[in-house]
Write a protein that binds this DNA or RNA. Structure first.
Length: 217
DNA sequence: AGAGCGCGGCGTCACCGAAC
DNA sequence: GTTCGGTGACGCCGCGCTCT
């Protein structure tokens, strides 16, 4: 794909800021009013509010692609096993783990271990680095919640649910980052293309001016 | 050699919107 | 109303580079 051929060898400061800058650049060049961010001055809370309302990268990119020919689409995920996106190394997602008896779980009812207190910031005491393959493949999940009675069983179930949720979120985060990188690459390419286009138009304008302006001498 | 720094990647939490 | 996926934010870790 064409946008992958750019060999950009500079380092980015912080990824969020960088992609934000790119977005501004593209918006400036194209003069669209995406009004992405006026961040930088606003406090983190406001910024968070603003950022959290942005549509997903896939959505943005797909909208871009419909506007501008040549902008690639991020593929929609097919259902499990229907083929992986082209540029991800097939991740060893232990799909069988998802096959719980209920297929669902309730996040809110989960046990809140003491380490959860770290959510407020400061020192994250929750650093229990669960191995990437926290649960082995083919693990058969426990019985449905309805059959759980003893406190121990309930605790086990809660732990299992939490691990499952963490694992899913882990994979989601990876995928999200991959998309984000793709999105940033796409923006970079678009900036390059638009800059060339802009330059050409300016040159053309100058030429036309020369032709149309009356000679003074 | 090793201290310091910047960066990329990861795991996790919190939050939001969409889907049901 | 509940569940689930997507994503920003945060903190940590490892790596490479530079400086002393």
């Amino acid at each position: 794909m064409w946008w992958h051929q750019h060999n950009l060898c500079f380092r980015h400061p912080i990824e969020e800021d960088y992609s934000g800058e790119l977005e501004k650049k593209v918006a400036t060049i194209t003069e669209t009013d995406e009004s992405t961010e006026s961040e930088g001055v606003i406090d983190s809370h406001k910024r968070r509010e603003i950022l959290s309302r942005r549509p997903s990268y896939r959505k943005i990119l797909n909208e871009l692609s419909s506007d501008v020919p040549g902008v690639p689409k991020i593929e929609e995920e097919k259902s499990e096993g229907e083929g992986t996106p082209p540029n991800i190394a097939t991740m060893a997602v232990p799909t069988s783990i998802y096959q719980t008896s209920t297929g669902q779980y309730n996040e809110e009812t989960e046990l809140a271990p003491s380490h959860m207190a770290a959510a407020t910031g400061d020192m994250p005491t929750y650093q229990i680095r669960a191995p990437t393959t926290a649960l082995p493949q083919g693990v058969v999940m426990a019985a449905s919640p309805g059959s759980l009675h003893s406190p121990q069983q309930l605790a086990e179930e809660a732990t299992r649910k939490r691990e499952l949720r963490l694992m899913k979120n882990r994979e989601a985060a990876k995928e999200c980052r991959r998309r984000k990188k793709e999105y940033v690459k796409c923006l970079e390419s678009r900036v390059a293309v638009l800059e060339v286009q802009n330059k050409k138009l300016i040159e053309e304008l100058e030429t036309l001016k020369d032709i149309c302006s009356p000679k003074t001498d």
